[in-house]
Amino acid sequence: MSTVSIGLLPTGIGEPVQATVGRTARYLRETWLLVVRSLRTVPRVPERLSDVTIQPVVFTLLFLYVFGSAIHVPGLSYQNYLVPGLVGQGVAFGVIGAGVATSTDFTSGVIDRFRSLPITRLSVITAQVVGQMLEQILGMMIYIGVGLAAGWRPQFSTAGLAEFIGLVLLGVFAFNWLGVLLGMMVRSSDAMQGIGFALVFPLSFLAGAFVPISGMKAVPRAIGNWDPLSAFVAAMRHICQGTNAQGSWQLEHPIVAMLGWSVILIGVCVPLALRRFRRVESAI
């Protein structure tokens, strides 16, 4: 089919389908287009994926083979102790990935263009979350793959596996929304990177992913006992290896606590992020 337009504007090339489909169909279509857009950019800037590819490999190998030789956990091999913990604290790193991607988009003007289009605005922010979730899921799979190769042996039933996958997805989803919210509030991706690391790094080390909280000094132990990430770490370990932790209510009921923290994060961040997105404005 050849185009029949003679002028600068494309005319006679079929009509846009937008008017003919319902609102939900439009929303899904637009979200899909925007997710594909962000996935397409991945091979062009592979280094942007380093936080979900290189970092899991480095963390796993570093702790297993460098620090692990000096860490002894009673009743568990260090592989079985470490890998579920890494997955548990790893969900929080989504804050950095999602935050940096969001602040980059918002400072580049490309989001302005999307917002000036007749597309559902919810699709723009949904695509942001979905795209980041896919990246984080890749990171989780790398943790699991490297862990299995290094000798991690999870012991769960099919129901346990489903529970494991469900909780990981929920955690990733919750922290991604926090990242999107922070990404919209912070004005540069460098600042977002800094804030993300300052927030996530200490909490992940205090969460008992690498060494037991019970062996820490009083102050870090107190923080670790109530660090939200500790619940994620303890929940993963409970599901994968059947271990039980002590020290605080949330550690004794890690699955309920992990669900609770995720719901709180989602309940706070989603409405705030949506509100912020709707009224993102310029400030001279």
């Binding site: 389908v17 937008q18 857009r37 580049s108 003007g109 490309v110």
Partner: peptide
């Protein structure tokens, strides 16, 4: 806009196709 609002990591053609798709083609 004043600041070229394109996806920097897509090609010119990919950007145009994306915009056309988002406009409903």
């Amino acid at each position: 806009g004043q600041f070229a609002a394109l996806e920097a990591n897509l090609t010119a053609q990919e950007n145009l196709i994306l915009m056309a798709r988002l406009r409903g083609y």
